[in-house]
Design a protein around this nucleic acid. Structure first.
Length: 220
DNA sequence: AGCACA
């Protein structure tokens, strides 16, 4: 009976001592390799158990933990832990930022003649573009304009035009006059000519509710 | 001057 009690105490002490020892060793044995780690564990378990049964365990005097950097710096076989990353293991998709346009604003403006226009709508028609114009150039210019929704470039053989949809008629109107005659690097004969489109941009995904509350394809 | 997409 008393013997059993001693065994219990002994075991408890051993386990306790063991845990402390393992915690210390774990600082230096990060990733054991399969069976080898198991064997090593056994030997250590035996050895440390014996050590602690033969001498009374005295807790080491407390000294304040040294600066962590010195530890990682001198341990040659242990890499410094990476800084804590709360997103580790959770791949975060790189969301393309709305980057400022690589193409700066119009370098200059040229007067535009032949200003006949269509009734105001939410879509602009861009004409008189240079022969070398590419969509990226136009997108860099128009996508930063307030109320920009989408654009479509229509390239014919010598002539390229472009349609730009805005949130509403007033946003389109603002760009209609602020960028009228704007000269971009690819511009040929003068600046771009901006008119309201004959037909508003027709791609309405939110047709629920129909065209009520809309003016020329744009909400009012 | 050249106006598509639904």
């Amino acid at each position: 009976k008393g013997r059993a009690a001693e065994d219990l105490v002994f075991d408890a002490e051993t386990k306790s001592a063991l845990h402390i020892e393992m915690a210390k060793k774990n600082l230096f044995i990060k990733r054991g390799v399969g069976t080898d780690a198991n064997a090593m564990d056994q030997s250590k378990r035996l050895r440390t158990g014996g050590d602690y049964t033969h001498s009374a365990y005295a807790p080491p005097p407390f000294h304040p933990p040294p600066p962590a950097v010195s530890m990682w710096g001198t341990a040659g076989y242990m890499a410094a832990p990476p800084p804590y990353n709360p997103y580790a293991g959770y791949p975060v998709p790189t969301v393309p930022m709305t980057s400022p346009s690589p193409v700066p604003g119009p370098t200059a403006y040229a007067p535009v003649q032949n200003m006949k226009d269509n009734p105001p709508c939410n879509t602009l028609f861009i004409g008189n573009l240079g022969e070398t114009v590419v969509e990226e150039e136009l997108r860099g210019l128009f996508s930063v304009q307030p109320g920009f929704k989408q654009m479509k470039v229509l390239r014919q053989d010598r002539n390229t035009v472009c349609f730009i949809e805005f949130d509403d008629v007033s946003a389109a109107s603002a760009v209609h006059h602020t960028l009228q005659g704007a000269i971009v690097p690819s511009s040929g004969r003068g600046g771009m000519r901006i008119q309201f489109s004959k037909n508003p941009f027709g791609r309405r995904k939110d047709l629920v509710g129909g065209m009520v509350g809309t003016l020329n394809g744009a909400p009012v």
